[in-house]
Amino acid sequence: MLTTLEQTQQKWGGSNKLIDQWLNNRRVLLVQYCKIAGLAPYESPGRTLPELEEVKTFCDLLVDYVSEGHFEIYDQVVSTCENISDECKARAHLVIPRISKTTDAALDFNDKYSEAKDEELLYDLDKDLGALMEAMESRFEQEDTLLEIVYTNVAEPAAVVQ
């Protein structure tokens, strides 16, 4: 997922401050995911469960990322599409519901772990992270598709999100 993010940043990075911030927030989210999942370069031979506070930090980042997309990015991108053409608008409106389907997985994960007080809950973490990241990977792909729709139809990338 980090490799795909790097490709996305290479493709659209620097074209718009808000998009850059959003993609950077995706990177921060993915790095925290790697930490709590014990993935490279954060893996350890005698891997133990992450600290509950690390999981809660991930939850905060997750909700912030999902919210930023829904309440800042998508509306502005769709609005830009509406100004470009009916085809661009129609394509964007097909993608948004696919992104929205993944929101429940993020919110369910957050509901389970953000207010957790019992560390025994962490025994479910690997399974729950796997399901969450499957949904988030789909979300990232759809978000990238949304950016692709806009950037292939607009002459000035800085005009995408104002």
Rank of each mutant, 00 (worst) to 15 (best):
K89C: 11
Y65D: 13
I19N: 01
S85N: 14
Q9D: 09
S44V: 15
V31H: 02
S67T: 15
K11C: 01
V31W: 03
P97K: 07
K127R: 14
G38M: 06
Y151S: 03
I73C: 06
T152I: 06
Q9F: 08
M1A: 08
N83H: 13
C81T: 01
R27E: 13
Y123S: 08
Q162K: 12
G69Y: 07
A105T: 04
Y123V: 04
I149L: 06
N110H: 11
K56D: 13
N110M: 07
L121Q: 05
V28H: 12
H93G: 02
T57N: 14
D60H: 09
L107H: 09
E72A: 13
Y113H: 05
N24F: 05
F71P: 00
L29H: 08
I73G: 03
N24D: 10
L121V: 07
L49P: 02
Q142A: 02
L122Y: 02
C34L: 15
I84L: 12
K17R: 12
W22A: 04
E51G: 02
G69F: 05
V66Q: 09
D128Y: 06
L18E: 12
A131L: 13
D104R: 15
S79A: 09
S67C: 14
P50T: 11
Q142P: 06
D104S: 14
D118N: 11
S100G: 09
E134G: 08
N25Q: 12
Q142G: 00
E143W: 06
I19M: 08
E148K: 09
K127S: 10
Y42F: 15
L132V: 04
D86E: 15
L30P: 09
N16S: 10
Q32S: 10
L147A: 05
T4S: 00
Q7L: 10
L29Y: 00
E82K: 11
G46D: 14
F109E: 02
T145R: 03
T80V: 14
K56L: 11
G130Y: 11
N25G: 04
W22C: 04
D126I: 06
G13T: 10
V31R: 07
L23N: 02
P50W: 03
D75N: 13
T4E: 01
L2C: 05
E54P: 01
E87F: 06
